[in-house]
Every structure is written in C-alpha cells, then in structure tokens.
Design a protein around this nucleic acid. Structure first.
Length: 287
DNA sequence: CCCCAGTCCTGCGGGC
DNA sequence: TGCCCGCAGGACTGGG
C-alpha cells in the first residue's frame, strides 16, 4: 500500500473528506473537519509505514495515520465498490510552483489526484497526530520497533520477556510492530517452532531461526504484494491482488498435507487468544 | 502478567 | 435454492 502511493510525495493537500457511504462512518480522529482544516494547503512530505499503518507526513510534521485493520485498502484510482468508500484525500495534481504554474491552472477546475480509503467492514481507523503526539502516542509505548527494522537481540529481548505462547506474543504490536495473524503462523512454520511454546522458553537457536524467518517471510510477502485470500479483499494501491497466498505453508491449510514433511502430518488448526493458528505438529517441535 | 469474552462492522462459504 | 451460523489479514476493554 505504501509503495503504491509513495510517488505522490510533494503534492499539496487540497481536501480531506468523507465519501457518501450509506454505512456507519469509520472512526476518524479528531474529526473530519479538523483533519481537513489542518491538512489543507500543506504538502505531503513523505509516505511512511509504521508496522501495519500507512502514515502520510505533512510538511509541518503532522501525520495522518491510516490503520486498515482487517479489510481496509489504501488506493489510487478506482475503488472495488462505491459503497464502502470511506475517505477521500485530494491532492493537487501538479507540484506547486513548477509545471503546476504552467499547466495546472486551467480556469474553474484544477485537476486533482486522490488517495482513497476503502473498507468493507469499517473497522479501520484514521487519525491525525501532530509531530509530538505521534512521538508520544505511537512511537513510545503503544507501538514497538518495526519487525523489519528491529535488531536480533532487541527482538529476542522484547518478545522473549513474555511467558505467553510465542504465536500470541508475536501479535503484540507493543513488543514488535507489523506481524499479523497470518504471518505469525507462517514464520513459526519456517522456523520450525511449536506455536504453543511460551516465548520465554525458546532456545538461542530457536530465536535465531525465528528472527531469520520473520524477516524472510515479511520481505517475501512485501515483494509479492501481500496475501489475497479467498474472499479477494486485499489489494495493493492499484486494486491488484497480491501473490503471497500462493506461498502459504500453513495458513488456511487445515487438513492438507504439510509441504515440508511431505504429508507425514496434516496441517492443524488450533485457537490461541481467540485467533486461528495453523501449524504442522510434525515439523514444529518444542525444541 | 496473562487469559477470556465481548465489541466495533460486513460479507462469505459451508451445512442443512 | 435459501437461510442460519461461524468465521475472517485487528485492536481494544473490562473482569477475573
């Protein structure tokens, strides 16, 4: 999602508005009018990612934090349906000062590009934070270091402090940010670790394998533009499906043969912290 | 510190 | 075919 809108850096915010969805509006803080007022006229200085969030940074340090949760999409171009289009972020179509002066000032209606937020379930949240609030509320405490940035020893220290099952600890965004339910199962299978094992009981060799697997799985998933499951919801910014679902080893494969041990064991589904975990009892041993 | 159930929503696939 | 139920890439809250 982030990569798909990164080229819009340098554009000027023209408007931020809700779209006429017949559904209950998504949560927007501190309110759509305040967001519009504070962003209008500012320039998009960077498109960042923090864990699972897409962050639009304005030139004064304000950050519009988009949290897609289960079904939210950050799009340019056409949304899948009109019905679940929730937010429209309008950007001047030309960089101000340069070609904008020459071609952009057609009278009446200047052309505009949009970043759209579409969300079928409507669980997504969009928040505008000042530079200070971003620092305090997100970077300190609530959100841990990003899974792809974190150093091996920090990862081990933060996740390994927990006595909860390692699969559940990996989902805790305050320990390490960016691992979702699907990828937690996948990386534990790559690392050959039993998801039920308390995080505090992993051996040094297991930490080494898990750290490596975390990076490998997430980098591959990003390279393949994410996992589009059977319901087809996940899309990149151009509304194209991802390809990583074709590489899943365990997720949503309950009862099917494990691809690693060639079906000595079938993939099993269990529930941990009210979420599905998929794993291979043959390949993922306690030590 | 950890676990669990419930909550916010909509859409779907499976079973009957 | 149609209807009901369970489940879903997430995160938060309150109670034990």
């Amino acid at each position: 999602m982030r990569r798909g809108i990164a080229h819009l850096v340098g554009r000027e915010f023209v408007a931020v508005r809700r779209t006429p969805s017949p559904r209950k509006p998504i949560l927007v803080r501190p309110g759509i009018a305040a967001i519009h007022r504070r962003l209008k006229g500012r320039t998009l200085a960077a498109v960042e990612r923090l864990g699972k969030r897409v962050v639009l940074r304005a030139d004064n340090g304000d950050r519009l934090v988009i949290e897609p949760r289960m079904t939210g999409l950050v799009l340019i171009g056409q949304p899948p349906t009109r019905e679940h289009l929730r937010l429209q972020i309008e950007l001047a179509a030309f960089r101000s000062g340069r070609e904008g002066a020459a071609t952009g000032s057609r009278m009446g209606s200047d052309p505009v590009d949009c970043i759209l937020f579409w969300d079928s379930r409507g669980l997504g949240v969009v928040t505008l934070l000042s530079a200070d609030e971003y620092e305090q509320k997100l970077l300190r405490g609530k959100i841990g270091p990003d899974a792809i940035e974190i150093a091996a020893d920090d990862f081990c220290a933060r996740v390994g402090k927990s006595r909860t099952p390692v699969k559940v600890a990996l989902l805790d965004q305050a320990r390490v940010a960016g691992i979702g339910n699907l990828y937690a199962s996948e990386m534990l299978h790559v690392a050959r670790i039993d998801p039920r094992l308390p995080a505090s009981r992993l051996s040094p060799a297991q930490w080494q394998r898990l750290y490596r697997a975390m990076r490998d799985v997430l980098n591959a998933a990003i390279r393949f533009e994410g996992s589009t499951l059977a319901d087809g919801t996940y899309r990149n910014a151009l509304n194209e499906p991802g390809g990583y679902q074709n590489h899943h080893r365990v997720y949503d494969r309950a009862g099917k043969a494990c691809r690693r041990c060639r079906g000595q064991s079938a993939i099993v589904r269990i529930v941990q912290a009210q979420r599905s975990t998929f794993w291979c009892p043959c390949c993922q041993k306690k030590r």
